[in-house]
């Protein structure tokens, strides 16, 4: 059997979900037998070099780059998984969703308690910077997502069981302890 190909990305996330992937401990040796990684922070491949079987997305969409990256993943992956609360519902970045964007930027760069070094009172405006969105969007509100693995981060056992089920085509066992939102 040829190895399945996996790609991962962290959008508006904290890399905690990627840490949880590593938390499968020595099973990572088994994983290497089963899969090959393509575009991912794990191997630092920046662009897809081939079509991918499973794309794993951590984090929601808070700026234009996240949206672009997510669409890029959808185009290049057969199966797309939202991994963790941020990808599923925006997570902590989405705490800003009830606050107007101008108010957020002012608090972050002009009025907040830690802006002393910003003596010229500049809100970052370099054209190279991705445009911040009006609010943080869950991934499935931007592209079609096939599976969801909740948790903050998702338990390593949940990630492992889901990957093994997908890779081998077997039924997934979901014990009560592995589905948690925190």
């Amino acid at each position: 059997m040829s190895k399945k190909i996996i790609a991962t990305a962290s959008l508006a996330g904290c890399f905690g979900c990627h840490m949880s992937i590593l938390d499968i401990d020595d099973r990572i040796i088994d994983l290497v037998e089963l899969v090959e990684f393509n575009k991912s922070p794990v191997d630092d491949i920046k662009k897809f070099t081939k079509h991918v079987d499973i794309g794993i997305i951590e984090g929601g969409c808070c700026n234009s780059e996240n949206v672009e990256n997510l669409k890029y993943f959808r185009e290049n992956c057969d199966i797309l998984i939202s991994l963790g609360e941020c990808a599923i519902m925006g997570g902590l970045p989405a705490l800003r969703n009830g606050i107007p964007i101008k108010e957020c930027l002012n608090e972050a760069y002009l009025d907040g308690p830690t802006v002393g070094l910003n003596t010229e009172k500049i809100v970052p405006n370099d054209p190279e910077l991705p445009m911040i969105l009006d609010r943080v969007y869950p991934c499935h509100e931007v592209v079609k997502v096939d599976y969801y693995l909740p948790g903050c981060p998702p338990r390593a056992d949940l990630i492992w069981d889901a990957l093994v089920a997908l890779l081998t085509g077997s039924e997934m066992d979901l014990p009560y302890e592995v589905i948690k939102f925190d």
């Binding site: 609360e85 599923i88 693995l149 589905i179 948690k180 925190d182």
Partner: peptide
């Protein structure tokens, strides 16, 4: 509502969350 479980003090003791676990809500 705005139910951000990871940052909620009641997480783990919350009945709404517990019902979501019971019915295996992966995403609404």
């Amino acid at each position: 509502g705005n139910h951000f479980c990871p940052s909620c003090e009641k997480s783990g003791n919350c009945e709404l969350q517990a019902l979501a676990y019971k019915y295996q809500m992966m995403v609404p």
